[in-house]
Design a protein around this nucleic acid. Structure first.
Lengths: 205, 205
DNA sequence: ATGGTGACCATAATACATATTGGTCACGTG
DNA sequence: CACGTGACCAATATGTATTATGGTCACCAT
């Protein structure tokens, strides 16, 4: 599963070390089973058979560990979204798939990995690096699709690209951001189709 | 100020009664100064010089009083939005004004009447009648603008009206709903213009 | 009827003492 | 130097005893 990419902010001590991976594995297990709050750093230490102090040789805080797990989780969602986008070959359909996949992946996180979802929600509220980076990557993906659509002639070219990206991003945000998603459950069935429709109409040349 | 329209659900006992108004006035004062939670029903009773029990002759619960105050508050926002819309005469501009006014009015509630804002947020979370009715009225306003735009030829007519209304409503929701607004502060400057732009492009015939 | 209340109850909020927890550091070991 | 830890501290979390609050009801007065 997790090929934990060494993250700048959460790292400390030896970058590539077996124990670091053990910590991540244990944390993933504990956080997703018992939740972030209920898991203590000592629990993780016990799980890997070292002392609590040793953990702090690898991560500078409990939150840093949380960020790592959260980042993995968001990267997985992103991967699913990218996969869905790649299934289509024309930009309009790519956009539709992107929207649909985002909603589906986020909902699955909520319903099947509630505890991890809660971490992601905290990450969004407190603007952890992991959450910001995820947003940025999704935005980039969106931009790529739009750019491609402009080249193929599927999308209009008058509106400044940045503006279009921003606007569509804002449309997607309630379903991307775990915090907002919670308050949009009533609409998750219809929203992807309806909003994709609106967005595509707005993009027609 | 408040010509409190007698609401179906929150009412009880004599519909049009001086004491009912006194309660509403006292509650508006107390709730907006000390907050909904910190205000006790006894406080309201003391403020109007009656016993707590007497208050329950007019409202069936503390929440019912909260709903009344919240409803007034939301009606005021709605009035502002309607006023802003009426200033424009062509549907596209009406839409722009609507979006802008919603954001402005909601932000003002947040920053200048925080305590009332919190009630509105609860109303949204717990789906009080007041909040649902507000949403419905805003939706109706949106529909009216769209319908007018279709008649004047400013807006396209192919997409089913209901679908368009729903989609645009979903676009506005993060700025309408007090709960969501909190998490969209970063975008309240740009969002109205950018999203109005996108929506209007999607409506072009 | 209409106007009005004190006494009462179950539940929720508060306050406070106690125990955990996140985090550090000096210090051992090979 | 790389590996590893127990003892320690401030701050937060938790359990619990107590109080305050929402809400009702029987009852009195006009």
């Amino acid at each position: 599963m997790s090929k934990a990419v060494t993250n700048s902010v959460s790292a400390r001590g030896p970058a590539d070390h077996e124990v670091r991976d053990q910590i991540v594995v244990a944390a993933t297990e504990h956080f997703s089973r018992y939740g972030y709050e209920k898991t203590t750093v000592s629990d993780l230490a016990k799980a890997i058979g070292f002392s609590k102090a040793y953990i702090y040789k690898f991560f500078e805080s409990k939150q840093a560990i949380g960020e790592m797990i959260c980042a993995n989780c968001l990267r997985q969602i992103e991967a699913e979204v990218r996969a869905a986008v790649d299934e289509a070959d024309r930009p309009p359909e790519k956009l539709r798939r992107m929207f649909k996949a985002i909603v589906e992946a986020s909902l699955r996180l909520f319903f099947q990995d509630r505890k991890l979802y809660e971490i992601a929600a905290s990450a969004a509220t407190e603007r952890w690096q992991a959450a910001l980076a995820y947003e940025e990557r999704i935005r980039k993906l969106l931009q790529d699709i739009l750019q491609e659509g402009r080249q193929t002639g599927d999308f209009e070219r008058k509106t400044p690209l940045d503006e279009t990206v921003m606007a569509i991003y804002l449309v997607m945000r309630p379903y991307l951001n775990p915090l907002l998603l919670q308050h949009s459950f009533d609409y998750t069935d219809e929203a992807p189709a309806q909003l994709s429709g609106l967005v595509l109409r707005s993009l027609s040349p």
